[in-house]
Amino acid sequence: MGMCPEHYIDYMHDYLDGDITREHEQELKKHMQSCVSCQKHMHELSDTVAFVKSATHIMAPPHFEANVMGRLPKRKNVLGIQKWLRRHPIIVAAAVFFLLMGATLMASYPNDNQFSVTTQPNLVVDGQTVIVPKGEVVKGDVVVKNGNLIIEGEVDGNVTVINGSYMASTAVVSGQIEEINETFDWLWYKIKKLANDAMALFE
């Protein structure tokens, strides 16, 4: 076989891959008619292919799918939580605070959920909603606690809404408008105080 040009072996492989040119195929066939060694080589290659192709199909074990599903990382949830935490740092701070301080501190929380409002005669009170009526001018600061404020007229002073919402469309307020969420402010106050107390320990 050592006598045969090497390219006949290449042609055999091209033939087995199904991408031999017509010319090469004819050249190979012509050579093989007179070359026993190349006939033998081609025969062995074909047998080799048939041998590998006779391998039976192997199936995954029956529990395979369940095992994969059981091993999947809970990626989406973890990412979701991380994203949420990053967007809500105050809640995180509060959660940490609650965890650290526990219920003892909460006992000192001013449990005052009563609705209250400053007493100007031209304020209209409807349930827990305070209205500055259209055309009216309320003199002095208006403070609403645990209720909502709707300003349709004018306020000649500061407006403060604690634990409620403030609504005004064409409102005219001469002073400052402030909305306070008391729970968070109280927490913030406590956290700052704790931090200061802690700092004081090291001074």
């Binding site: 391998a55 199936m59 395979f64 799918e65 989406k76």
Partner: peptide
């Protein structure tokens, strides 16, 4: 979109082929 269970169908479709490659 976060529906982890939808992956089961993908595993189901390709498990035998993939296992066979690995086994061989």
């Amino acid at each position: 979109k976060g529906d982890q269970n939808a992956y089961a169908d993908i595993v189901n479709l390709y498990q035998h082929k993939l296992y066979q490659i690995c086994y061989r």
